[in-house]
């Protein structure tokens, strides 16, 4: 197979939600000499981009997206250790994305998709999981102070969204607000809300989130 054929195959396994196929294609690509960065940037990410576009166009829905994300994760499991070796410590890539779901909320579909998309777009990821108290978030930011940090919080419920305001306040009180860019997402989150609580950005969906995140970190 030519390099382009290998990349196309990677892309197609993502688009076709072929979880096992995606892991296999990733291993084959590595064996044939492609770097992890090439595999992600020229194979898998274009696949996720197509998936994102199809979702925006209402051609596919959450079930298919979650399968594609699972395929992506299967590939990333293989690639992450390789990536660490390729990159070395000095390279920050797009930045460090600390992702989490607000305290009181355990809806992690959006969170998982966004985390996957950010990882696919060159962010190093610290995934704090669901139901994360603001104290923990602040602590994680403090521990990484000095790096290019993007904080990415999600909340599906109106009630947990309210905690996002406290997140920003707590970071300000701890003198950490200028150390991070902050994105919040989730069904109830609006531009107006982002403005009101002094965060930096929100996005329409996971594909959009990756675009917004890259712009924000420029």
């Amino acid at each position: 197979m030519s390099k382009q054929e290998i990349l196309d195959k990677l892309r197609d396994t993502i688009v076709n939600q072929n979880i096992n196929g995606c892991a296999e294609a990733t291993q084959e690509a590595l064996d044939s000499g492609l770097t992890a960065v090439e595999i992600i940037n020229a194979g898998l990410s274009p696949g996720m981009k197509i998936v994102g576009d199809k979702f925006e166009a209402a051609e596919i829905y959450l079930p298919q997206i979650m399968m594609s994300a699972k395929a992506m994760n299967a590939a990333m499991e293989i690639l992450l250790p390789v990536l660490e070796e390729e990159k070395g410590e000095a390279d920050e890539g797009a930045g460090l994305a600390i992702t989490y779901v607000q305290e009181g909320d355990i809806h992690d579909i959006g969170h998982r998709l966004v985390t996957t998309m950010l990882g696919a777009n060159g962010f190093k990821i610290v995934d704090m999981g669901v139901d994360v108290p603001n104290e923990k978030v602040t602590e994680e930011v403090a521990n990484n102070k000095g790096k290019k940090i993007l904080l990415v919080g999600s909340a599906l419920m109106t009630t947990s969204m309210l905690g996002q305001k406290d997140t920003v306040e707590m970071l300000s009180e701890e003198g950490l607000r200028d150390s991070v860019k902050i994105m919040f997402g989730g069904a109830p989150v609006s531009e107006k809300w982002i403005e009101e609580i002094g965060a930096d950005a929100t996005a329409e969906n996971a594909a959009d989130a990756a675009r917004v995140a890259l712009n924000l970190m420029k």
């Binding site: 079930p63 979650m66 399968m67 699972k70 809806h107 992690d108 579909i109």
Partner: peptide
């Protein structure tokens, strides 16, 4: 759980 969204598909 959230796998439900995939279960209806698979």
């Amino acid at each position: 759980g959230d796998d439900w969204f995939m279960a209806i598909f698979t």
